[in-house]
Nucleic acid binder design. Structure first.
Length: 808
RNA sequence: GGGCGGGUGGCGGAACUGGCAGACGCACGAGACUUAAAAUCUCGAGUUCUGUAAGGGACGUGAGGGUUCGAGUCCCUCCUCGCCCACCA
């Protein structure tokens, strides 16, 4: 018979709720800890992939509470977004209703897992109490120039019928629906994240509690490069071409230059010349190319403009091309080309027979390579007064020279673009802007916030319902009171998730997004847990938003997340568990079949959190078996007539287990090895079960239950009660081990001969090297290896091994 | 092309700072209980050679080299899988 998890889990969930045991206290003298999991999109049913995220957090939460932290551990829902709107179109249900229903079922499932959130702090981003502060902040940003509208080439997803931010385009495809993204010139709203590029980059160094790979991804995304902007005059023309280079040391090797196809100067330069038609044709071909094919097409192509530029350092005339491998978005859209020292330029030069001029010689090979460009450091040649310098030194020397002669200047470029935040969809925060024919673009006044989403719109599946809602769009201009219309775009849902963790600190505040005092106490998040897929998206936006809110004076901290844990995926049949793959194991099924404690124990035991977890039904059964065994052991305690033995070894293992479990949870979140240690402790108890005196037995079992309680809380509460305790186990203090109890009187050490294991001997712990050697020499197994051999030396590792090195 | 992770039994995974590889669990095998099965309990187990047996030997952490008394762990070369970035001037 297996234990009655259904009754037990229900009983304790009700008990916890009734006694409000998970309510976080307000500001107190206890050491605070803010623990957070990335909040979910309320799509309805939870599968074990979601559950893993929460279970990792909840186990830690329970551990921290028992360690006397003042813990903030909230939950909320990222409730705006397209799926709700699509569901509305499909099922003829309002997104608000659909979302609420999903939240309800998800909350239920989370409670059934025994997750110990403080539900009083619930944050739902689609509610006006929340999104009004998106609007409020937008207005503040607008005043400061951090929010602005501009016409720009944007990424448009035809399926989602909306534009996307750069970060939301993955390999040229929409992050959500994987449709191919089109480039459209549209007037859109942006947040000026680029103002923070340098700080976002610099502060990454301080985020030592983050996985290195996430920091690297963000660094790459921000993409800082320092270099030189140089002006190349066009021969026989007043035009000048500005280029950007990170390799000023190659300036003397420039033999041509090329423009991006979109560069406006191209058309200007060839206007009225015989090249005009050819160039226009080429440009059209490139520009029309789809984004993806253009990126994939590595074959370099270009056309000579028939014009020459002058190298400002040498006075040399160099031909100007337009080509397919220069990007308009980066640098200046025009580049100087040094085929000898850049592989792309090299390929282009070979193809069009452009001279290749070497200016850096390879110190390891004096013959110039005719097969590829030499891009490493080397010795400067053919570079006038800079000859013989190391090319790395030459970078700064030539930069100095260029600046001195006013031919250009040092500049810094970033890959990071401003965050495009407007979306042509209904289910999001309305952008609080009013367009008036007389007054132009006018921000909605603070007193009129929130600008509510109208509820009476029609979802036809075509276009933005908001734009068709007369009651919404028609309004009065706040300035001149004349007729005006509202902005119908809504905000990217990543705006919502960029500050929800700050709202948790003060979720009911209605004068500001949050009170500074509360936020100052709780922020930053001490431990954030979530998937790696947000390495750049959510985690970068949140960092920006927090810094921007700081500069509005709303809070003091500049980095929202002190420590970050990226948990691995849950994999089944070789794929990530997901609805579309059809390989989901639902939380409901698991909890129904084995109970929450088993489900929790398994996901924690099967792999360390940062690694992918292979789902195994048999493994789950094993976890269930373990819980049953412990439950049985506790049940048998009463009838234990017992022996009289006192086991020092069991006492030692008890303390060892406390130490191991505590360390594994606190330092590395290695719940798998912590659980393994608890299992070993259990195994040891059962071995000694019949001979042990009941006092020590009971004592050991109590400890076992306490140590297991963060992992499998319901069954542990029940066992705790069976063991005769009236208070919840949550009130129990986390145990401390006694280092002196870990010492063993006798230990077994390994004896090696020339590094090979040849035997094991039992010794008193404090036995010295010489004595051990003598014992080893008289050991039968070892003796035979030493016969007629000379001992050259011995290596002794206290408490571990003795290695005897022999010769002959 | 660049960067970051991995590669350990049949499987998931352990192994502090270079010190007895394979903890813990799953699956498996044998036995006990049972009319039988399931459940439960006990025992076994890296591979291989050898021995009637107790036992003993050799090999073994993707491959090959190196450093060391000693290498899963450090160094070099390479293979392979995953992720991220990628014509970034």
């Amino acid at each position: 018979m297996s234990y009655d998890f259904k009754t037990i889990e229900k009983k304790w969930q009700e008990y916890w709720e009734e006694k409000k045991l998970f309510k976080s206290t307000e500001i107190s003298d206890k050491k605070k800890f803010y623990l957070l999991e990335m909040f979910p999109y309320p799509s309805g049913k939870l599968h074990m992939g979601h559950a893993r995220n929460y279970v990792i957090g909840d186990t830690l939460a329970r551990f921290l509470r028992m360690n006397n932290y003042n813990l903030l551990y909230p939950m909320g829902y990222d409730a705006f977004g397209l799926p709700a709107e699509n569901a509305a179109i499909k099922n003829k249900i309002h997104p608000d209703k659909w979302t609420d229903e999903c939240i309800k079922t998800m909350t239920e499932q989370q409670k059934k897992l025994g997750l110990s959130y403080d539900w009083d702090r619930l944050v739902v981003t689609s509610k006006p109490e929340y999104y009004r502060w998106n609007q409020w902040v937008f207005s503040k940003f607008y005043e400061k120039g951090l929010a602005y509208k501009k016409l720009a080439p944007t990424n448009f997803c035809p399926k989602c019928e909306t534009v996307l931010a750069n970060e939301q385009v993955i390999d040229g495809k929409c992050w959500r629906c994987e449709s191919e993204v089109e480039v459209k010139n549209l007037e859109q709203w942006f947040y000026k994240i680029t103002d923070y590029a340098e700080e976002l980059l610099a502060d990454l160094d301080g985020l030592t509690g983050w996985p290195e790979r996430v920091r690297i991804m963000q660094r790459n995304w921000i993409g800082k490069s320092e270099g030189l902007s140089v002006i190349f005059p066009v021969k026989n023309s007043a035009q000048k071409i500005e280029i950007f280079t990170t390799r000023p040391d190659t300036l003397y090797g420039v033999t041509f230059m090329t423009f991006a196809a979109e560069h406006p100067l191209v058309i200007e330069l060839v206007k009225g010349t015989e090249k005009e038609t050819e160039i226009k044709k080429f440009i059209n071909k490139i520009v029309v190319q789809k984004r993806i094919t253009r990126l994939e097409d590595k074959e370099k192509e270009g056309v000579f403009l028939g014009k020459y530029a002058i190298n400002p350092l040498t006075g040399e005339e160099i031909p100007i091309y337009v080509s397919n491998f220069v990007l308009m978005e980066y640098g200046t859209g025009a580049i100087m080309c040094v085929p000898a020292h850049d592989q792309r330029d090299f390929e282009f030069a070979k193809k069009y027979n452009i001279p290749i001029k070497q200016v850096i010689s390879n110190p390891n090979n004096s013959n110039p390579d005719l097969e590829q460009a030499f891009t490493d450091e080397g010795i400067m040649v053919n570079s006038q007064q800079f000859n013989d310098l190391n090319s790395k030194e030459a970078i700064s020397k030539i930069s100095d020279y260029v600046e001195e002669k006013k031919l250009g200047k040092r500049v810094v470029h970033y890959k990071l673009r401003d965050w495009l935040i407007s979306r042509q969809r209904y289910w999001g925060t309305p952008i609080p802007i009013i367009y008036c024919e007389k007054c132009g673009t006018v921000p909605g006044p603070e007193k009129d916030l929130p600008v509510l989403l109208p509820m009476d719109v029609k979802f036809t599946g075509e276009g933005n319902p908001l734009a068709k809602s007369e009651s919404f769009t028609k309004c009065k201009c706040p300035k001149c009171k004349g007729d005006a219309r509202r902005e119908t775009d809504t905000m990217d849902t990543f705006v919502d998730s960029s500050w929800y963790f700050e709202r948790y600190c003060d979720p009911k505040q209605n004068k500001f997004p949050f009170d500074k005092k509360n936020v100052s106490y709780w922020m930053p998040v001490d431990q954030y847990i979530g998937g790696i897929e947000h390495a750049v998206l959510h985690l970068l936006y949140s960092r920006f938003y927090t810094k921007a809110l700081r500069d509005l004076g709303l809070l003091d901290c500049g980095e929202p997340f002190k420590n970050l844990l990226c948990q691995g995926m849950v994999v089944k049949d070789g794929f990530k568990m997901s609805k579309s793959k059809g390989n989901v194991v639902s939380v409901d099924d698991m909890v129904g079949k084995y109970g929450a404690d088993t489900a929790r124990l398994f996901v924690l035991f099967a792999a360390p959190p940062e690694r992918d977890l292979d789902w195994s039904d048999e493994g789950v059964a094993g976890s269930f078996r373990f819980l049953n065994k412990i439950y049985k052991l506790v049940g048998q305690l009463k009838g234990h007539s017992g022996g009289t033995d006192t086991s020092e070894n069991l006492e030692r293992i008890k303390h060892l287990t406390i130490k191991k479990v505590t360390g594994d949870i606190r330092e590395e979140f290695h719940f798998n090895t912590a659980i393994a240690a608890i299992m070993e402790f259990y195994n040891e108890i059962t071995v000694q079960h019949s001979t042990l005196n009941s006092q020590q037995l009971k004592n050991s079992v109590k400890m076992l239950v306490i140590l297991l309680s963060p992992f499998a809380p319901h069954i542990c509460e029940e066992m705790w009660q069976i063991l005769g305790n009236n208070e919840s186990i949550l009130k129990e203090k986390w145990p401390v081990w006694d280092e002196t109890k870990l010492v063993q009187e006798k230990i077994i050490i390994a004896v090696q001969i020339n590094g090979k294991l040849r035997g094991q001997i039992e010794i008193k712990t404090e036995t010295g090297e010489k004595e051990i050697l003598e014992i080893a020499k008289s050991n039968d197994k070892i003796k035979k290896y030493l016969e007629n051999k000379k001992i050259i030396k011995t290596i002794f590792v206290p408490k571990k091994l003795l290695n005897i090195v022999i010769g002959g």
